[in-house]
Design a protein around this nucleic acid. Structure first.
Lengths: 350, 350
DNA sequence: TTTTAGCACTCATTCTCCCTGAGTGCTAAT
DNA sequence: ATTAGCACTCAGGGAGAATGAGTGCTAAAA
């Protein structure tokens, strides 16, 4: 977008003012911005030009101007200055990164909560699983004569377990046999490579323990399935209400219910190439997000998985601040995951 | 509360009408209820009596009456008829109970979501852990020369695991030694019986592997801690907005933020003796709940744990319907947990 | 040619005033 | 003890009227 220096200055001043106040901004206040020594009449003329370019809008004839989605786009791409996180902010973000977090799911969930609380906007978070996960190893741990623990580990280093109780007894030897059979037959297979036929053959080979094979394998399949299916966690939906554009229920309710509707990852934008992406108003595909903005960042979980974390808010969003916080946090998460599949216990502060 | 038959009839009619309409109810509509052949003037006299008894209130002089919290109390205790679940409702509830659920935390969370969706009110769910959990057994599974899996099982039959990577190598024999040491020294101990001293002694006995002891034990402590710390899951907060009393943000926002504030179990009422409890308006201790009602049910998880599930809504709540659904669902959860610490995979429909 | 002062005009917002109607309490008759 | 009738109350809603922020345009100044 080719604009004169003065037009840029004015556009930026309008947008930043509007971001702060949420009120249409008039020529008078802009004329008062330092470094811009022109009268309000001149500003009015410039504003009319900017409106003709599609960068500003007028809610009604006798109101000031508000930025259009296109205006925000120009602002985000060209005008916005990097926001420098304050010491307090970085401290808060760092604290959040040192939370004791256990399972991957919990980390994702927690990260969403934290970023929502820190930005005062609703947040969503998800991990996009690599879709070709396989089981790498099975372990069966005898607990008593009628119960044992199944432990499976995937090639992405996720470990899951389940305690099983049986109606009948079982010997250590049987369990050993079963264990060997599982590890030779069912490792390295993706979910749809585990066919009913394979199950039948294996059950046959298992002899007495034929019923257990299906028990263990169906648990393994559950695990694989749960890793492929991406679930979105949302947090802080009610923080919408603190922003003036959502003071009216008619505006807030549809968005809120969209965000809390159950959890299909496809409904949320994903960063395409860049690690951070900003989607302004109508740039969003989902209808319910057409007049909101979404800022998403992705981070590396390792083992072929990526995490995505984003916030949703009105198009009048403090893009500079939000992107700064989000990218710092996402980078922190990446670092966190770098050192082992999950932060080891020692990492948490003493 | 000692009331004449006619007063009871009138009170009940008023409350049930108000539950449906959310509008103050006048003497005329009540006079029209079948089986009550008196004029509106008579009703007015009776209403004045009921108001004097503290069972009804008048929002302003020229409006109808609405039930007071005390009125609801009488209704719930004496007047309310059992609501019979329809076939559709039971089918829906049963379906929900057959969901594939994996870990305890997920079951709780899911149960809350389901009951919120089914009742159209916000729901909360939590498991109150028995506070004296101990580790019953440790297993260490060698994955490669520099990584292994820790599996711990508590005396309440909860199994948790973690994958650990090490900077240095480790032999199978060392791991065996470690395993034995852990099982002889750290089983059967509650969180605060695991003292630093004990850790020192054990580290010493572990020889080369002294660093690993603390690694494993601190994981075990994390597990014990996570089981004791009760986290509440809330769901469906936005469904509040569909009820007329929360059409205005001033009323909805404080409650919504109370419900989404982070998750200290103490903030929610717990059933005291009975498996089901109803708390009406000011009967709630929390200020934010002073003009809402809460219905809670508890169910048995087994292994010394109880689950609690409840819904929050306006005092004008369809108590009959809600209690029927909630108790049915809670009973279903109890049954679910009866057969093994978690529903085995075969239970899910094919 | 660009900028500015001035002025008429627009329109959302807010306030006031008034009307309407549902519902009550009281009194007198049944 | 019940009921018909009547005067009274009061929230809610709609119709102006006043307010004021902000605009576009024109004509003069730089």
């Amino acid at each position: 977008m080719d604009l004169t220096e003065r037009k840029k200055k004015i556009l930026r001043a309008i947008i930043e003012n509007y971001i702060q106040t949420a009120e249409p901004v008039g020529s008078k206040v802009i004329a008062a911005t330092p470094g811009l020594n022109v009268s309000s009449a001149t500003i009015r003329n410039e504003m009319a030009d900017l409106e003709a370019l599609g960068l500003l809008e007028q809610p009604h004839t006798s109101a000031g101007r508000i930025p259009s989605p296109g205006g925000y786009r120009v602002y985000v791409n060209e005008l916005m200055e990097d926001y420098r996180l304050s010491v307090q902010e970085t401290r808060k973000l760092n604290e959040a990164l040192h939370l004791k977090m256990r399972e991957l799911d919990q980390v994702i969930d927690q990260a969403g909560r934290v970023i929502s609380q820190l930005t005062q906007y609703p947040a969503f978070a998800l991990a996009s699983g690599s879709s070709r996960v396989t089981i790498q190893r099975f372990d069966l741990l005898m607990v008593s004569s009628d119960s044992f623990i199944i432990v499976v580990m995937t090639d992405t280093n996720v470990v899951r377990n389940r305690l099983v109780r049986l109606p009948s007894d079982l010997s250590e030897a049987q369990l050993q046999l079963l264990n060997t059979l599982l590890n030779t037959t069912f490792t390295g297979l993706t979910l749809d490579e585990i066919t009913p036929e394979l199950m039948r053959v294996a059950s046959h080979a298992a002899g007495e323990a034929y019923g257990l094979i299906s028990l263990v394998v169906s648990f393994a399949m559950d695990v694989l399935e749960s890793l492929e299916q991406r679930r979105v966690h949302t947090a802080g939906i009610t923080s919408l209400l603190s922003h003036p554009e959502y003071r009216s229920l008619d505006r807030a309710a549809p968005l809120m219910s969209y965000l809390s509707e159950d959890q299909d990852a496809a409904r949320f934008p994903m960063p395409q190439g860049d690690p951070m992406e900003i989607l302004i108003g109508p740039e969003n595909v989902a209808d319910a997000l057409k007049d909101t903005s979404v800022v998403v960042a992705s981070y590396d979980i390792g083992d072929g998985m990526r995490g995505v974390i984003g916030v949703v808010g009105p198009t009048r969003m403090d893009y500079a601040k939000i992107t700064a916080r989000l990218s710092y946090f996402a980078a922190g998460l990446s670092r966190l995951f770098e050192q082992g599949s999950l932060p080891p216990a020692e990492e948490t502060e003493k």
